[in-house]
Simulated assay, not measured.
Amino acid sequence: MDLDLVINVIEENGYMGLFFWLWFGIFIIPVPNEVLLMTVGLASSMGSLDPYLAFLVSYLGISTAFTSIYLVGRIIGRRLLRFLEKRKRFADTIESSMKMMDKYHAFSLFLSCFVPGARNLVPLLYGFSRLSFKTFAIFAYSGAFIWVLTVYMIGYLFGDKMDAIMKYNKEMWILAIIVAAAAAGIIFLKKKKVKNEGIESALGTESAIYQERQHK
């Protein structure tokens, strides 16, 4: 993507223009999200954009796009899926997205952020399946944050080597998924450990109270 194009969008429309571009671009602009976000990161590293504001706007734009896809799934999901399933390029992605959902359940929303194609279809499918918005928000927004941060920082640090990065795009995202899944697993296990320790502590307290009453 042309770096000047991103800068011109900001100069002419402000950061709000970038927000709407990222929001609606996921539907109508035939450019991979990774390329767009890396270009924003590169522009930030060159001082053309405020790094923190550019990242925040990028995250909000992508999160709003995912939310819109989820809501579309809730409203017209059945009809839209019937339409997409008739087209081979979407049918294959729908099938692989469903397999991911069957295997990882709601956590697939987190993982799908790192998979081109699936990141647009998994929120749609969960909207259609009436997954609660709270559950959707927890997994989709956390996944979007890690994904946007990762791609943005790659562009910020290595944007001048974008051609080489895109050449190994598939391998890069497989590694990113493994790292993200490992990080999420560690967080989950830590929370589970803390919860179990809390339960054991509560049980121990109840047992002590019971024994004290028995002695009385």
Rank of each mutant, 00 (worst) to 15 (best):
V148L: 07
L149E: 05
L149V: 08
L149C: 08
L149F: 13
T150I: 09
T150N: 03
T150V: 09
V151Y: 02
V151H: 01
Y152Q: 04
Y152M: 06
Y152E: 05
Y152A: 05
Y152F: 15
M153H: 06
M153W: 09
M153S: 14
I154A: 04
G155K: 00
Y156G: 00
Y156R: 00
L157W: 08
F158T: 07
F158L: 14
F158I: 11
G159M: 01
G159Y: 00
G159C: 04
G159I: 01
D160A: 14
K161N: 10
K161E: 10
M162W: 11
M162F: 12
D163G: 04
D163V: 13
A164I: 11
A164S: 14
I165Q: 05
I165R: 00
I165E: 01
M166D: 00
M166H: 01
M166A: 07
M166S: 03
Y168G: 10
Y168M: 11
Y168C: 06
Y168F: 15
E171G: 15
E171P: 09
M172S: 12
M172R: 08
M172E: 04
W173V: 11
I174P: 03
I174Y: 09
I174Q: 08
L175F: 15
A176H: 07
A176N: 09
A176M: 14
I178V: 14
I178K: 01
I178S: 08
V179S: 07
A180T: 02
A180M: 07
A180K: 03
A181M: 08
A181R: 00
A181G: 05
A182M: 11
A182R: 09
A184I: 05
A184W: 09
A184P: 02
A184R: 07
A184N: 05
G185S: 09
G185T: 05
I186E: 04
I187M: 10
I187S: 09
F188R: 15
F188H: 14
F188K: 15
